[in-house]
Design a protein around this nucleic acid. Structure first.
Ligand SMILES: [Mn+2]
Ligand SMILES: [Mn+2]
Ligand SMILES: [Zn+2]
Ligand SMILES: [Zn+2]
Lengths: 146, 146
DNA sequence: GAGTAGTTTAGAATATTTCTAAATTATTGA
DNA sequence: TCAATAATTTAGAAATATTCTAAACTACTC
């Protein structure tokens, strides 16, 4: 079950399943890594910064350093469990939804939100230069209070 | 003539015209500011970082500090002569094309390029929450060497 | 359990950007 | 033209996010 779940639907994984996911990524299920996996994957999609994840971990009583937060965010990203979304010049967001999809970004709140898949379509992407391939097509719809 | 040109077509402005543009933005045509305007607007569209613009200025023999580069990039942006594009987590790009348009981003070269306007269409943007308005719709097509 | 490889960590280092406060320059208008 | 004023530039310090280093710790293997 856990093996075939894509990362945009890991919303109901038990700690047991998370350990399986972590081992599947060739990583050891340490106390810190399991705690982060829980915060990230145990309840629906998230778009989160390193600093906020750190605060959440500390609030949950998990003793963990910021360096470990960064290490794990990158390891999860390399393993395809997360993806990095660049919307803000000053910090990176990590997204638990690794399927292709687009985003709303709420300027004032600095908050990222998925646009339900299938909603937006990008048409007429021009030919790309010889020797290149498209690695991602990302749409960001920026919203401000009106 | 210069007065009505939009910033995506300032490719042929003389120094005289640039001074007019600068004064029109309520800024003083200082040596440094004119030099930067020349580098930015005198030859077609550009997507440039502060650091690279600084290097170009120094290479052109213009004595200018990095703080002044940042000051002017932000002043030009506030005046609507530039716009900031966020594609890379580690640095900001400033775009001389201020009309709505989309981008290719060449991952390896860290280079931004305009997608000719009218090419890409974004369809089916979902309803946005009450109290918000769309400030920008940006598409980034990331390209990597294949 | 010993060995080893992976992990965590504090703290230092880096990189980009912004800030501060003082010196310089452009503008205004008497 | 010149003095007064306001804008601009600048060096250097500071802020921020992120990465690196190297040592301590922990998980896994046999
Ligand atoms: Mn990264
Ligand atoms: Mn800025
Ligand atoms: Zn997302
Ligand atoms: Zn552009």
């Amino acid at each position: 079950m856990a093996k075939t779940q894509s990362s945009d639907e890991m919303g109901t994984l038990s700690s047991k399943d998370l350990e399986t996911v972590i081992r599947g990524a060739d990583l050891r299920p340490t106390r810190q890594r399991l705690a982060l996996a829980n915060l990230l994957f145990a309840k629906g999609n998230r778009h989160i910064t390193a600093e906020i994840l750190h605060t959440e971990a500390l609030d949950a009583g998990v003793k963990i350093s910021l360096a470990t937060i960064y290490n794990n965010l990158h390891q999860f990203t390399d393993a395809g469990l997360l993806r990095e979304v660049v919307v803000d010049a000053s910090k990176s967001y990590f997204d638990t939804n690794t399927l292709p999809h687009h985003h709303f970004f709420y300027d004032e709140e600095q908050r990222l939100e998925d646009i339900p898949d299938g909603q937006i379509r990008v048409e007429n992407i021009p030919d790309i230069p010889e020797g290149y391939n498209i690695s991602e097509v990302g749409v960001i719809v920026r919203l401000s209070r009106s």
